[in-house]
Measured scan of single mutants.
Amino acid sequence: WKVTVKGVEYTFDNPEEAKKFAEELAKKKGGQIHYKDGEFQVH
């Protein structure tokens, strides 16, 4: 499971962890999460 933040990729074994990480980042940066092709992208 991948989380991509401004072109930087983070990989997680667990989808729950990936989702949590993406949500935290989106909150911090005031961005939005897009889920696409099996990965979370924070913009």
Score class of each variant (00 low, 15 high):
Trp1Gln: 02
Trp1Ile: 07
Trp1Cys: 04
Trp1His: 06
Trp1Glu: 01
Lys2Gly: 02
Lys2Asp: 01
Lys2Thr: 07
Val3Arg: 00
Val3Trp: 01
Val3Ser: 00
Val3Leu: 01
Val3Tyr: 01
Val3Ala: 01
Thr4Arg: 06
Thr4Lys: 07
Thr4Tyr: 07
Thr4Ser: 10
Thr4Asp: 02
Val5Gly: 06
Val5Lys: 01
Val5Ile: 14
Val5Cys: 13
Lys6Glu: 15
Lys6Tyr: 15
Lys6Asp: 15
Lys6Ser: 14
Gly7Ile: 02
Gly7Tyr: 04
Gly7Met: 02
Gly7Gln: 05
Gly7Trp: 04
Gly7Asn: 09
Gly7Asp: 12
Gly7Cys: 05
Gly7Leu: 04
Gly7His: 06
Gly7Pro: 02
Val8Lys: 13
Val8His: 13
Val8Pro: 00
Val8Phe: 14
Val8Gly: 09
Glu9Thr: 14
Glu9Phe: 09
Glu9Ala: 11
Glu9Lys: 08
Glu9Cys: 10
Glu9Gln: 12
Glu9Ile: 13
Tyr10Pro: 00
Tyr10Asp: 00
Thr11Cys: 07
Thr11Asp: 08
Thr11Val: 14
Thr11Ser: 11
Thr11Ile: 14
Phe12Trp: 01
Phe12Asn: 00
Phe12Tyr: 02
Phe12Met: 00
Phe12Arg: 00
Asp13Ile: 07
Asp13Glu: 09
Asp13Arg: 07
Asp13Leu: 08
Asp13Val: 08
Asp13Ala: 10
Asp13Ser: 11
Asn14Cys: 09
Asn14Met: 05
Asn14Val: 04
Pro15Val: 15
Pro15Ala: 13
Pro15Arg: 15
Pro15Ile: 15
Glu16Ile: 12
Glu16Gly: 09
Glu16Ala: 11
Glu16Arg: 10
Glu16Met: 11
Glu17Gly: 06
Glu17Met: 08
Glu17Phe: 05
Ala18Glu: 00
Ala18Tyr: 02
Ala18Cys: 02
Ala18His: 01
Ala18Ile: 01
Lys19Ser: 07
Lys19Cys: 08
Lys20Glu: 10
Lys20Gln: 12
Lys20Met: 10
Lys20Phe: 09
Lys20Gly: 07
Lys20Asn: 10
Lys20Tyr: 09
Phe21Asn: 00
Phe21Ala: 02
Ala22Gly: 02
Ala22Asp: 01
Ala22Glu: 02
Ala22His: 01
Glu23Thr: 08
Glu23His: 08
Glu23Met: 07
Glu23Cys: 10
Glu23Gly: 03
Glu23Tyr: 09
Glu23Arg: 05
Glu24Ser: 08
Glu24Pro: 00
Glu24Phe: 11
Glu24Asp: 12
Glu24Thr: 09
Glu24Tyr: 13
Glu24Trp: 13
Leu25Asn: 04
Leu25Thr: 08
Leu25His: 07
Leu25Ala: 07
Ala26Cys: 09
Ala26Leu: 08
Ala26Arg: 06
Lys27Cys: 07
Lys27Thr: 11
Lys27Val: 11
Lys27Met: 12
Lys27Pro: 03
Lys28Ile: 14
Lys29Gly: 15
Lys29Trp: 15
Lys29Glu: 15
Lys29Gln: 15
Lys29Ser: 15
Gly30His: 07
Gly30Pro: 05
Gly30Met: 02
Gly30Val: 03
Gly30Trp: 05
Gly30Cys: 08
Gly30Glu: 05
Gly31Ser: 07
Gly31Ile: 05
Gly31Pro: 04
Gly31Lys: 01
Gly31His: 07
Gln32Phe: 14
Gln32Lys: 11
Gln32Ile: 14
Gln32Glu: 11
Gln32Met: 11
Ile33Asp: 04
Ile33Gly: 03
Ile33Phe: 06
Ile33Val: 15
His34Trp: 12
His34Gly: 06
His34Thr: 15
His34Lys: 10
His34Ala: 11
His34Asn: 09
Tyr35Arg: 01
Tyr35Gly: 04
Tyr35Leu: 07
Tyr35Phe: 12
Tyr35Asn: 04
Tyr35Ile: 09
Tyr35Lys: 02
Lys36Cys: 06
Lys36Ser: 12
Lys36Phe: 12
Lys36Asp: 06
Lys36Arg: 08
Lys36Val: 14
Asp37His: 04
Asp37Tyr: 03
Asp37Met: 01
Gly38Cys: 08
Gly38Gln: 10
Gly38Pro: 05
Gly38Met: 08
Glu39Thr: 10
Glu39Arg: 05
Glu39Met: 07
Glu39Phe: 04
Glu39Ser: 07
Phe40Cys: 08
Phe40Glu: 03
Phe40Ala: 03
Phe40Leu: 07
Phe40Val: 05
Phe40His: 03
Gln41Ile: 14
Gln41His: 13
Val42Cys: 02
Val42Phe: 05
Val42Lys: 02
Val42Thr: 04
His43Trp: 10
His43Ala: 09
